[in-house]
Design a protein around this nucleic acid. Structure first.
Ligand code: MN
Ligand code: MN
Ligand code: ZN
Ligand code: ZN
Lengths: 141, 141
DNA sequence: TAAATTATGCAACTTTGTTGCAAATCTATA
DNA sequence: TATAGATTTGCAACAAAGTTGCATAATTTA
């Protein structure tokens, strides 16, 4: 992705254009799959303070630029949202996530829509998170 | 649940019967919904070392006595397994979990079976985790 | 009941995440 | 394009969560 487009994404979200924000967005655009805070720390060669990375991720989540992914091992993962994500708090893409047991990549399966779930009387659903664990297409024998 | 039955559960799983294990199992039997490590620490009045609680929970997960629940805020929750849970590593109950936004209780909805998900070519599912967030039956207006 | 096995508590440590604040950077505008 | 005002960053200090090794205590086995 072009640099101009990253700058635009930031401006469109009323965020000032800074080195850390640009770099972290670049990483998300380049990277195949979700990333943890620690991944970003490594991939930026510790160029940015840990705190800055935490705050940048938090800002991006608030703006609807990235979303968090719940995982079976309860590590916090982040991935880019599709353009349409709203910037008001609890946005969620309605797609399924896939965690590969082998290569450990976590995919956003944008083409797989979250299934409906029939709940018992009285339970009112707002968000449905589906996380599938297994072997990904690149790790098949 | 009777004390004898707790002792039996431990023995059935080749675990020695100790105070911490009995107490923590009791808590799970009494408690409505899932618990975090910190909940257990509080409910046991700090009678047991933090490390002991960590190790007890880990042992119970390995034996298939309890299971972990992935949550949207990535806190680690535990709940009792139904009797049939195997004791070999990655056991999972095939039910849906519900996190209430209001009272913050996390329910095992044993009656709601995990839906099937159609994955793209090449992705092989092993475990499907479904976590629904919303308002529970006790918190409706 | 004693030996052997297993679990616990403690200390020390790592990793992860949070907060306040001064210095640096960015944005808007003159 | 220089400057004032707003925002972001890095640092320090801290808190919470989780891990490991090892001596002691408790439990099981015989
Ligand atoms: Mn996603
Ligand atoms: Mn459950
Ligand atoms: Zn893979
Ligand atoms: Zn509730």
């Amino acid at each position: 992705m072009q640099i101009a487009s990253i700058d635009n994404l930031l401006k469109r979200n009323q965020l000032s254009v800074t080195d850390s924000r640009k770099k972290i967005l670049e990483l998300f655009k380049e990277h195949n799959g979700a990333m943890a805070h620690s991944d970003i720390e490594k991939k930026t060669d510790e160029k940015f303070d840990r705190v800055t990375i935490y705050r940048t991720l938090q800002t991006f989540v608030e703006k609807g630029i990235i979303h968090t992914i719940p995982t079976p091992d309860n590590s916090v993962l982040y991935a880019l949202c599709k353009d349409s994500c709203s910037s008001t708090g609890h946005h969620h893409d309605n797609h399924v996530h896939f965690v590969c047991d082998n290569c450990n990549i976590t995919y956003c399966l944008d083409s797989v829509v979250t299934p409906q779930v029939d709940l018992p009387q009285g339970f009112e659903p707002k968000v449905i998170d589906v996380v599938v664990t297994g072997i990904c297409k690149n790790c098949q024998v």
